[in-house]
Design a binder for these strands. Structure first.
Lengths: 185, 185
DNA sequence: CGTTGTTATGCAACGAGGTGCATAGCAGGA
DNA sequence: TCCTGCTATGCACCTCGTTGCATAACAACG
């Protein structure tokens, strides 16, 4: 139940509407925490009634008006409390790993194209991360050598990069393994 | 919604009761697919009514009787169908990454012990994987060089090992980053 | 004999999360 | 003008998943 906290962090980095949050969850934040817009709107309303966030109606021209959310003091406290509590390591769900073990009871070679699809997706993400790193962290910070927000965003991004590289290498391993069954049928 | 399929794979590897499945989901399978026993029992009943699995009452001495499930032909077909369908890459949820970015608005150094806890958990998992690898895959297969089940289980395990190694290296990176804020407060 | 622990199965209730759909303002192109 | 597409918010429904609890058989220990 950390969606609230992910939203708090995102709003602390920059206030915004539910729609804008949903878009961020498709981009930067979404690479380590996913959420649909319905979920975000629902949680935002709960956070609003809990006084975790403030709302401000922002009239817009050329597009519908929006509600801009920003973090209120109780929200900051809630985040601080959550940061001080231990969190259990994430529970993993890898369809592909299930499929690979399941392929032993079907045709292993039939999985090759699926694995290649995943490899391509991870290659694309890696390229996206690297482009973002070059853009946002390519040159030294203008705010001094110890800008916490920037440094911590960077180390999280490096985690994403390391993850994608690991996945690509592993998927190559998987492909090599599957290919052996293909060749000798 | 691949829990059914994870159960099918597990039952194909070896038939067993709901309880036994739950224990497997705490061990080997659980490292890439988690499930509680309630979930497993519920899904097993659904799978039984869909004729995906057969049940056999097994009286036991010295402990309560059990129901042993095994995969029925329609279950095999369902698995085969699922294997042939493309699956979207997993949705990720990393509490720790949220916490790290959130630490920029709190005390970054306060996260160090939490990150160390996670590092320890991953080190433990890695050791467990490596022990399992040495045990199960240390010597060449007795069933010939192309035992699909064994080879595919091994490549999935290698994925787990690669993941844990990557995580440990990244957490060291995180710790080094956090330490910089600690030193210069 | 009572307690604790393990095997084994299950119910009830709740919250999290996802899908589909609806609405509405406005822009831009066919 | 109609259609498509983007911004922006929301409802209804249903499934997934977790928590807490309950039951029952037996083993081992004090």
């Amino acid at each position: 139940m950390a969606l609230e906290h992910a939203i708090l962090v995102s709003l602390l980095e920059k206030p915004g509407s539910g729609y804008e949050l949903a878009r961020r969850f498709e981009r930067s934040i979404g690479y380590f925490w996913t959420a649909t817009h319905q979920q975000i709107y629902r949680v935002l309303r709960r956070m609003e009634s809990d006084r975790w966030v403030d709302v401000r109606d922002v009239p817009q021209y050329g597009r519908p008006d929006k509600k801009e959310y920003s973090v209120a003091p109780p929200g900051r406290e809630a985040l601080s409390l959550w940061l001080s509590e231990p969190t259990e390591p994430e529970s993993v769900r890898h369809d592909l790993a299930v499929k690979i073990r399941g392929a032993a009871f079907d045709d292993p070679a039939a999985l090759i194209s699926e694995v290649e699809r995943h490899r391509q997706a991870h290659t694309g993400r890696l390229a996206h991360y690297l482009a973002g790193e070059a853009r946002d962290f390519g040159e030294p910070s203008a705010d001094g050598p110890l800008d916490a927000e920037r440094e911590l965003q960077h180390v999280v991004l490096r985690g994403g990069i390391a993850y994608e590289r690991m996945m690509i290498a592993w998927l190559d391993d998987v492909l090599a393994t599957l290919a052996r069954f293909d060749a000798e049928h």
